[in-house]
């Protein structure tokens, strides 16, 4: 599989906040070759929904999130955010249009400038956008810090190294929230945290989602975490979409062979799936020369000649479940 297509896009839904179509991101790999990081991926996000994006290293999930934020330049595609196409924009125009999208990164410690005080870090967005200074912004910074569970007089005066990893992630979330964003793109936000802290942050995100009316893209390799936070899940493999489905549907009845292999690999799972070793074989092909047709075919036990010749398109196999596979 690993195919393209738009069957999963909800074209008539007036609640769609962000719609990405046929996004292609390629990185130069020297000698005129390119890494096909994201190859024609489409997503849409309904207001208030959390889209989980899962897949293994090299599947393009992080690049997808960064490209939507325009932190990576896409080769082609459209990124419609509230009826504005962000794709061709640059400079200040882009900054204005993208203001309502914010991003949270994997490593909270590296995401904070170590020399700056927490108050200044959180106030950064307000300063950039000009409505800084004065008691209004101070009050807002305090309120946001309290909302992420960092209340207290002295918090704002301290610097990142005085905080633990979990607390740093709270600061990062506060910094994003101060901008009053509509969409939050989270790239592995809890992967660097211990289990007990991870739970704190996941609960916090659920609370903030309601309180601030957030719509989220949650990129993660951890399937249990994604199941917990997502309304809809997209499975990616080697720059392509394998499957998009409502969370429970995906975990109860994964239809794409790669989704099945991925779920069967979760240690200690009790899902009704055969051993992962029977569902996937071999190694990840090079993203410089991805396989023809379905990109998963070289590792798929169900692959046939058709899979090499023709790329499968996403199609609906059950209500709310879209799969790009000739055999699913």
């Amino acid at each position: 599989m690993a195919g393209t297509g738009h069957a999963h896009l909800r074209l008539d839904d007036p609640n769609i906040l962000l719609r990405v179509r046929d996004l292609v991101v390629e990185f130069p790999a020297g000698k005129g070759q390119v890494v096909h990081a994201v190859s024609g991926v489409s997503i849409d996000l309904a207001r208030g929904e959390t889209l989980g994006v899962v897949g293994e290293s090299g599947c393009g999930k992080t690049t997808l999130g960064r490209a939507v934020m325009r932190l990576e330049d896409a080769q082609s595609g459209t990124i419609e955010f509230r009826d504005h196409d962000l794709f061709g924009l640059g400079g200040s125009e882009l900054a204005v249009k993208r203001r309502d999208m914010q991003m949270i990164f994997q490593d909270p410690v590296s995401s904070l400038n170590p020399r700056r005080r927490v108050r200044d870090l959180v106030r950064e967005g307000l300063e950039i956008w000009g409505n800084e200074s004065g008691p209004f912004s101070d009050a807002r910074v305090e309120a946001i810090l309290a909302a992420v569970g960092l209340a207290g007089e002295s918090v704002g005066e301290r610097r990142p190294h005085e905080f633990s990893g979990g607390q740093c992630q709270r600061i990062c979330i506060a910094r994003a929230l101060v901008m009053d964003p509509e969409v939050l793109i989270l790239d592995e936000p809890v992967s660097a945290l211990d289990v007990s802290v991870q739970a704190q942050i996941l609960n916090l995100l659920e609370d903030l989602k309601v309180e601030f009316g957030l719509t989220m893209v949650f990129v993660s390799h951890d399937l249990a975490v994604v199941r917990n936070v997502s309304d809809r899940v997209m499975v990616m493999y080697l720059g392509k979409v394998c499957e998009v489905a409502n969370t429970e549907r995906l975990f109860d009845a994964p239809a794409h062979p790669y989704s099945r292999a991925l779920l069967a690999s979760i240690p200690g799972h009790e899902l009704n799936l055969p051993d992962a070793s029977t569902l996937i074989s071999g190694e990840l092909p090079s993203p410089i020369e991805p396989p023809s047709g379905c990109r998963f075919r070289t590792r798929c036990p169900m692959a046939t000649e058709e899979c090499a010749e023709r790329e499968p398109e996403l199609r609906e196999v059950a209500v709310g479940q879209f799969v790009a596979c000739h055999h699913a």
Binding site: R66, M69, L71, G91, S92, A95, V96, R98, R99, M101, Q102, M103, F105, Q106, D107, S110, S111, L112, N113, P114, R115, R116, E124, G125, I128, W129, C172, R175, A176, M179
Partner: peptide
């Protein structure tokens, strides 16, 4: 290469602001 530079850009900071506010003090 650290994420805080990307974080500042994501928030809408211009390149010159990144240089002055984020990098020069460090």
């Amino acid at each position: 290469e650290r994420d805080f530079v990307d974080a500042a850009r994501a928030m809408g900071a211009s390149r010159s602001r990144v240089v002055i506010k984020e990098l020069l003090p460090l």
